[in-house]
Amino acid sequence: MANPETSGLATEMALDQNVEKSSPVKDFWRKFKKQRLALVAGVFILILVIIAIIGPVITPYSSDEPDYANVLQGPSLEHLAGTDNYGRDIFSRILEGTRISLSVGTISVLLGALIGTILGLISAFYGKWVDSIIMRICDVLFAFPGILLAIGIIAILGPSLVNVVIAISIFSIPNFARIVRSSALSIKSTVYVEATKSIGAKNRRIIWKHIFPGTISSIIVNFTMRIGTAILTAASLSFLGLGAQPPTPEWGAMLSGGRDYLSTAPHLTFYPGLAIFLTVLAFNLFGDGLRDTLDPKIKD
């Protein structure tokens, strides 16, 4: 007959081993792998990143070399997505455009997240007039639709991809500032932050060591979803002639160049439009999966 004390000790040891084996990464993966659509979207994004890195190596043709003998050719084995009005291979241009779209989307949102996070933390921690000034500036930026604000900024700075990055990062700032401020306010009132203040810790240490880590999950989710918005905005600006300039193989610029041939060569706009649609959808689905995984209110 088993000894109750021995049995209880074995049970405690087993529980301790399970606790030791558990880790934040394993817990995240255990929850995230249940998000089937997010997993598929993550794989698609990974493929896009690989294409962006090795794009020039795998493109079958040069993206800007004209071939006047094959102008406006439809999809074929030789040209998988057809050719444009200069005979350039559309598939090759879409592959090279992946690097441009991902770079513009990631860099612009990264800049907006960096500045917005700093402003949100300062606003939440210091409060009073500092909070009022920062939030009123955010309210002014929120009053303009993102695309209109971007158009206004580029109208001042001039059309180019660099200015597109600046414009998108500016209208991304208030979004991150609001989200970070909301998370930081709830963390600021916790017991351990009050205890840290009481022992005389410096404000900078409290902000970055005790408050900022609690906002990371919301920053990651918003960052992922904003990349899709940034890619769509950059494509819209290029379509209007305010972003990438010919012959840059940017997806929005390719859409703009093909709109005069919608009736005779619809593949000029179909494939760049499909690339934009799938990329934006993938980032949105991936962001939704991250939100459902990282949100502590959502149980297994």
Rank of each mutant, 00 (worst) to 15 (best):
I90A: 06
I50R: 01
A167P: 04
S183D: 10
T83N: 11
N70M: 09
G289Y: 01
L161D: 00
R259Q: 14
L262W: 05
L110Q: 07
I219F: 02
I53T: 14
A253H: 07
G273H: 09
L77G: 15
A177D: 07
A244V: 03
I147W: 04
K34Y: 10
F239I: 09
S169R: 10
S62E: 14
L148I: 15
V191L: 12
A52P: 10
T279G: 06
V43N: 13
E65N: 14
N203F: 03
A253L: 15
L114P: 05
I170M: 09
S217V: 11
G228K: 07
K31Y: 05
G116W: 03
L285A: 14
L39C: 14
L110C: 08
T83W: 01
A235K: 04
T233E: 08
F171G: 03
L268T: 09
M13V: 13
G258V: 12
K197C: 02
G97E: 00
S108G: 12
A52F: 08
A230H: 01
P174L: 06
V221G: 00
K299P: 09
I154A: 03
L95D: 02
F283V: 10
S62W: 13
S182A: 15
Q35P: 06
D300K: 13
D288W: 03
M13Q: 15
K128F: 11
P4I: 12
P66E: 01
S218E: 15
I187Y: 03
G97R: 01
I58Y: 01
D292I: 11
D300F: 14
L149T: 05
I58L: 07
P75T: 07
R181Q: 03
F91Q: 09
V180D: 07
I153L: 14
I173G: 00
F91P: 05
A265Q: 02
K33A: 06
E194Y: 09
D295R: 12
I115K: 03
L268E: 08
K297Q: 15
G42V: 08
N85C: 05
P56N: 09
A113Q: 01
I115L: 04
A177I: 03
V221F: 01
L15M: 12
K202C: 00
